[in-house]
Design a protein around this nucleic acid. Sequence first.
DNA 1: TCTGGGGTCCTAGGACCC
DNA 2: TCTGGGGTCCTAGGACCC
Length: 404
Amino acid sequence: MLVDMDAYFASVEQRCNPALCGKPIAVIGSDKRTVVTTCSYEARAYGVKTGMNVYEAKKLCPGLIFVTGNNRKYAYTCAELAKTYAVYADKVEVYSIDESFLDVTDTHHLFGGPIAIGNDIKKEIKRLFGLNVTIGISYNKLMAKLASDLAKPDGLRLIGREEAPLVLEDLPAGKLWGIGRGTESRLRLMGINTCGELGRAPVTLLRNKFGIIGSRLKAMGLGLDASVVSGEQIGAKSVGHSMTLPRDIYKREEIEACLMRLSEMVGRRSRKHSLMGRVITVVIRYKSFKTFTRQKRMLNFTNDTHDIYFRAMEIIDSERLEEPVRLLGISLSGIVEDCGQEPLFEEERRRRKLLRAMDAINDRFGDGAIEWAIYKSAETSASLRPVPVISPAWRPGGVRKTSV
DNA sequence: TCTGGGGTCCTAGGACCC
DNA sequence: TCTGGGGTCCTAGGACCC
């Protein structure tokens, strides 16, 4: 079963502020250079969609009300929702901040069957949170996801094994979870438009064109999916942050200040979750939107802000920047668990203590209560301060410990 | 007046080694 | 006058998801 919140961020905002109810609203990330994260169904009626920039959205819907997103509300609600799910299912996979898979294989009979359990959950979420959800139920995750997509908004749909071929026969392949624009257009070039056609396509043909995912594509066309609802969170493979700057920058000091802040965000989150990594990736987006990445593997694992920062600066310095920079990002991968071993050398031990002390201060008094002086070195740094924005890919508890 | 942010997985080419 | 085969690791880019 997939439980998918309807227009999640927008609905939460409407719920918190009754003046917004029944009106076209769009939740955005920040005030500048941003896009619509989620919009209410009232706004969708005008053609407003996720990912649109604010001008485009405003043009389609002049009365559109913009609301800056509030991470804490969505995260809190998501965690509360998970408690509700636990009443109904033994395995709950919080797939994203607004979608959860529930394995009700062994529990639905306790609640009167699949449809009844779905209706119970819908009613309970409405009662407790005042939010609408759409529920898709089927014999695997792929089809549950499809069922919910077809039933939106405020719907409930069950697709049984017998019904599946009928549903899939004329369904455009791109409606399936995992087939995006690129794959859909490549399939179309092969004369495959619907899931029915995809399911009948020779597997060798698909393998030749798509490699390893070829056989999976055919299976998807047939409505088959072997993935399971995982009860526990899987460890993170990377930790990263990026930011589109309020304006394009090109001075070294501005880039330094921005990378320092990103390094601190990445380092702090890694330390919080006891993770270390040894691959630093820097992403750069130019004014022209040309975007590229450069990465460097280090000899040692780290989650130290300064290690991350100096590596990132090395990468920047080895690159000849061709244009003003619109976005910078840093991500740490090659992740292992930080088992808290004390470093051998005094110097490193002192750095660790320093970072721990800074983290503790910021935990207690709020982010930015204590910060690195380099932030202040560029006179513009205040305007380059990243606005922490939650993304729909957020998961409760954020990064979990890795099992390896 | 343009075009967010955080992830995962796969591919392909090249360096390097035996 | 011509140069094999097998493997791993690293890097960059792209597809896809929410």
